[in-house]
Design a binder for these strands. Structure first.
Length: 487
RNA sequence: GGCCCUAUGGUCAAGCGGUCAAGACGCCGCCCUCUCAAGGCGGAAUCAGGAGUUCGAUUCUCCUUAGGGUCACCA
């Protein structure tokens, strides 16, 4: 028994940025296709001419490319089922709508927007009719229709829903769902401008493009019975539905702007890596059999399984995203790290291989976002005023007095150091602890403080001295010594 | 409001009639340590409530409650 090739599609409307919700949907569509050896199609749904945003399509292309979701067919790469932009397919929908009229599954509606609005206001939230429309035009006498058509009255084409009975569909994650047909509104299929509505274009295109799995957010669950009615009216096979649980913000509401950065590019600007974002959202609403957490896209393609998708909505946790990002940063090899972090690194570090490698080692375990880098390394290029109290540290047993002793003893040693390298700094300084009668922590604490002016630095005294450089280090140490002497 | 969906720690979640109810993030403690991290070890923290079914319910059914979604010539 042979199965048809699995085909999924990502069908965004180019109305702005790439929301993490959209990206998650795209990812799952991609994974479902790839995990079953299928194809992933990109289709642009621009049937709302009023909401088009310039450049939005490029944002979609860029995002998909950056995260590695390569589509097999689409506006830019072509394919046997094109065109892949709905506005270029405008002519294909109308004949289908007319076919439905002929076969008694749809009708022309001449109601004005004003009338519909009044209808909605009058029924209020009580909702006397499904969707608020009273089906006024559903049974217009033929001569009346002809008259209105001759008068070129603007009209839409509506789906004629069955008034009785019920519709049942099966969703791969939510199971079997049944809705009374009386709940289904006579939804608009073709708008008065000739463009199809989203729901209509979707069904037509999904069928024409041989889409086998319709994957989308669970907000479409309640309109799915209407889709089924359409498929049945045409006599087409109903696709496999895979509805994805919603992604919420920390307050439990649908994720939106006020929850912070929810656009893919916002996250990138904030220093998150594409692979970390992908990994994080893959685990939002999906859990692998073995409970593993770190997944490359390739591994996801191999292990993804629809049965691991959960039904309940999940809150997007930025803290967990940070952890994923930190994990991916740690896994970067030095050259890759430098490449990604280049724009955040100080010029004084770039170009010197030894310094670059040290900075990479220092930064990798300490940052969760690339944007933290400038702040972490700021001490290299300049030192801020710092209080003398920084020299005091209980755990290191450092006091103003011990700091004074240490600096007085170490400065001359450092001044006479022939080679300002990490190893020579390390060996030389460590050899001083014993004669000073100090533990390394006690001895090194004031050095690090005086060299950086910071209570916390990425790396210890030796790394700080090395990065700050000989001349500037000695200047800072001397300054610290003088301040301590006056205290 | 009608209809639909959902319900395990603060968050992500495993579980699919019998478990001391996994794991991860975060939090707390200890170890390591030239600060801070990272790493290692340990800890606190969960089955919304109520009826049933059953020898036995986190798991199955119903009700309640709470959340969410949807009711456009938007997608």
């Amino acid at each position: 028994m042979t199965h048809p090739v699995v085909r999924t599609r990502f069908a965004p409307s180019p109305t702005g940025l790439m929301h993490v919700g959209n990206l998650r949907t795209a990812l799952f569509e991609y994974l479902i296709a790839r995990s079953m050896g299928g194809q992933f199609i990109l289709r642009i749904e621009d049937t709302d001419q009023g909401r088009l945003v310039e450049g939005a399509i490029d944002i979609i292309y860029n995002t998909l490319r950056q995260v590695g979701l390569r589509h097999d067919e689409g506006p830019d790469v072509g394919g046997p089922y094109g065109p892949y932009v709905q506005s270029e397919r405008r002519h294909v929908y109308k004949p289908y709508a007319e076919q439905l009229i002929r076969e008694g599954h749809a009708y022309r509606c001449f109601c004005s927007r004003e009338r519909l609005e009044q209808l909605r206001e009058r029924s209020g939230t009580e909702g006397g009719f499904a969707g608020g429309y009273d089906r006024h035009c559903r049974n217009l006498p033929p001569h009346e229709i002809d008259r209105l058509l001759e008068a070129q009255t603007p009209h839409v084409i509506r789906q004629k829903m069955p008034l009785t009975g019920s519709t049942t569909f099966v969703d791969a994650v939510y199971g079997s769902i049944t809705v009374e047909n009386s709940e289904l509104e006579d939804q608009v299929l073709l708008k008065s401008d000739g463009f199809p509505t989203y729901n209509f274009a979707n069904v037509i295109d999904d069928h024409l493009m041989a889409i086998t799995h319709v994957v989308r957010g669970s907000e479409y669950l309640s309109s799915t019975p209407k889709y089924n009615q359409l498929y049945e009216a045409f006599g087409w096979d109903v696709p496999v539905y895979v509805h994805l649980p919603l992604i919420l913000g920390a307050d439990g509401k649908k994720l939106s702007k006020r929850h912070g950065s929810t656009g893919y590019h916002d996250l990138i600007t904030e220093g998150y890596l594409p692979e970390a974002i992908v990994n994080a959202i893959a685990l939002l609403g999906w859990c692998p059999k073995d409970n593993r957490e770190l997944f490359s896209l390739e591994e996801l393609c191999r292990d993804f399984d629809v049965t691991g998708i959960s039904k309940s909505p999940s809150v997007f946790d930025y803290g967990k995203l940070d952890w994923f990002n930190a994990a991916y940063i740690k896994a970067l090899d030095p050259s890759a790290f430098i490449e990604r972090a280049r724009s955040f690194l100080p010029a004084s570090v770039l170009g010197d291989e030894q310094r670059e490698l040290l900075v990479v080692d220092m930064l990798k375990p300490r940052i969760s976002r690339l944007t933290e880098i400038p702040e972490r390394l700021r001490f290299i290029d300049r030192i801020e005023d710092y209080p003398l109290s920084l020299f005091e540290n209980k755990k290191s047993k450092s006091t103003l007095e011990s700091a004074r002793v240490a600096l007085n003893a170490l400065i001359p040693v450092l001044e006479s150091l022939s080679e300002w390298s990490r190893s020579s700094l390390h060996d030389t300084l460590m050899a001083q602890a014993e004669p000073l009668g100090m533990k390394t922590g006690q001895m090194l604490w004031p050095l690090r403080i005086a060299a950086s002016g910071l209570e916390v630095t990425p790396g210890g005294a030796i790394e700080v001295l090395f990065l700050v450089g000989r001349a500037e280090s000695l200047r800072r140490l001397e300054s610290g010594r003088q301040r301590l002497a006056q205290a």
